[in-house]
Amino acid sequence: MSVPEAIQSAECLERTVEVQGIATHLFEAGNPAAHPLLYLHGMLDGNQWLDYHKAMARHFHVFVPDIPGFGLTARPNWMRDISDYVFYVRDLLDALGLEKPFIVGHSIGGWIAAEIAAWYPDRVSKLVLTGALGLRIKETPMPDIFAMSPEEIIGTSFANPMAALPLMPSEISVEYMFAQYKQLTTLASLLWNPGYDPKLARRLARVQCPTLLLWGEHDRLIASAYGELYQTLIADSSLEKLAGAGHMPMFEQPEAWSSAISQFLNQEGGNA
C-alpha cells in the first residue's frame, strides 16, 4: 500500500475511503513502516484529531476512522445493529490494506473491536479495549445515557469534567445540536435495548490475540467490573485500571493511558 510522504509521526492526513458504499472519513498518521493500529472511537468522539491520537501516532501507523453515524461519516438507515458495524469494520480493514493490525477500541468502539476479535481472530494481532461496551452485568447496569442532559453525560463520563474541554463546541449552533442528535440516534439504534450483545460473552472464547483491558478506575458509565468480566472471558488478557480516570482516560490521564497502550503493544508476545 502506498502511503503519501506527508505522513510523518505527528502530522496527520485526512481522507475518505469508501466502505460498503459509505464514505468513511478518517485520519491517518505515524510512520508507515510502523505497525498499523486501528483506533475505534467512543460515543462522544468522531472527527477528532487530538493529543491522544498524536501520542499513538508516535509509535504506530495509526488509522482513526469516524464510525458511521459519528463525525463526518454518515450512517445509512440499514445500519442498525452491532453486526452491521462488525461487517463494516471487517471491510474497512481490507479497504485500508490492514492485514492484521493492532486494534484499540473505546466504549462503543471497544464493543465493535471485541466483536471483530471474536469473529475474525486472524485479523487482529493485539487488542486493547478501554471502557468497552458489549457485555452485561445484571447487578451493574450501564446508566441510562438517553435520560441524561449533555451536562450529565459529561459529568458521568469524566471523573474530572475539566478534561472534557477539548470536546466542547465553541458555540451551541443548530448545526452542532443537529449533529449531536444524529450521533445520539446512532447510539440509540445500537444501545437502546438491550444495549449489549447477549452472545458476545460466549463468543469471546474465540479471541486468540493478546488483549489489554484498560479501564478508568472510576468509570461510572461502564464500570471497571466490565473490564474484569472481559478479562475472565478472553484467554490471553490482562486488566489495568487507571487511577484518576473515569470513562474517558485518554482525556483524563492521557499519558498513563497512552503509555499503557504503547507498552503493551510494543512488548513481545502477550500477557503471559
Binding site: 438517553f146 435520560a147 442532559s149 443537529f178 442528535y181 445520539l184
Partner: peptide, 17 residues
C-alpha cells in the same frame, strides 16, 4: 425531563432540523 420528550431517533432528521 426534557430528555424524555425527544428520545433520539423519535423524530426524523428533517423534522428535527
Amino acid at each position: 425531563r426534557p430528555q424524555y420528550v425527544t428520545p433520539p431517533g423519535y423524530f426524523s432528521e428533517q423534522s428535527t432540523l
